[in-house]
Amino acid sequence: MLKYIGKRVLYILLSLWLIVTATFFLMRFAPGNPFTSEKRLPAQIEANLKAHYGLDQPWYVQYGEYLVKIAQWDFGPSFKYKSQTVNQLIADGFQVSAILGLMAIFIALAVGVILGTIAALRHNKWQDYGAMIIAVAGISVPSFIMATVLQYVFALQLGIFPVARWESFMHTVLPALALASTPTAFIARLTRSSMLEVLSNDYIKTAKAKGLSQSAITVRHTIRNAMLPVVSYIGPLAASIITGSFVIEKIFGIPGLGSSFVLSIGNRDYTVIMGVTVFYSIILLLCVLLVDILYVLIDPRIKLTGRKESA
């Protein structure tokens, strides 16, 4: 188990190094620099600014320093907002984004599993078709369109929820729903197909023959075994929530990390772009690791040595 986790961590570090290196070199080749503005700075001031941020050093020195700083969890200062560091920006924004993201994950898991379970138990009946139509619609409608539609209908037309901003619980409902829509649909489909597979097993027949109630069979035997594919979806789920948050936070005017990332893209604020990319990559890779570990813990049939290697 430890050896397996060690190996996974090694891969994650390699991926991370690749991401850090890629962001570093991409940003070096980027056109324009953060000091480009309508007013051209005097040459001396620009040189001083560059010296201040270490941009006058040769690339390998900058690269080495960047790697060391990231290892120390220091993403440097923001180029655009002189008084702020990227660490601060991430800390402030992520508080909001994490709440929104966790709400969306909760909605997606709860609604998705319930929809999928109903569809599987009422296989080929109207409940099944209804749930699957919802799921196909959820997959086909991108989250930013869902967000706009929700905002238009429930905030602008009906006035049930506030249009934008981040102040009370009511403000969180629409963005969380919009963010959850696509993952909910995926989870519903996953749950349904894996439930159907589990339901065809002999031990379900045995459970029925023992005289167990339908609910006991569903809860104790079916859902537990059908949850494996859902667990493996946690990685893509996190990715979908994080990238979804970029547009959702922009649409609903939420002061989270997603919207400050989008803002920094517009501002060409390179240290923020790099920092947030690396930060989100770490979260995503940790989610993948979590899934791998959870899988082994939940399913005793999986060998610890990992994929395809039978040794």
Binding site: Y11, L18, M27
Partner: peptide, 21 residues
């Protein structure tokens, strides 16, 4: 491929669009 697979797809796409125009 495994190492590259760990790189988040949309984040990389955003970086590319920012940098390469």
């Amino acid at each position: 491929a495994d190492v590259l697979y760990g790189v988040p797809y949309l984040l990389l796409a955003i970086l590319f669009m920012v940098v390469l125009g």
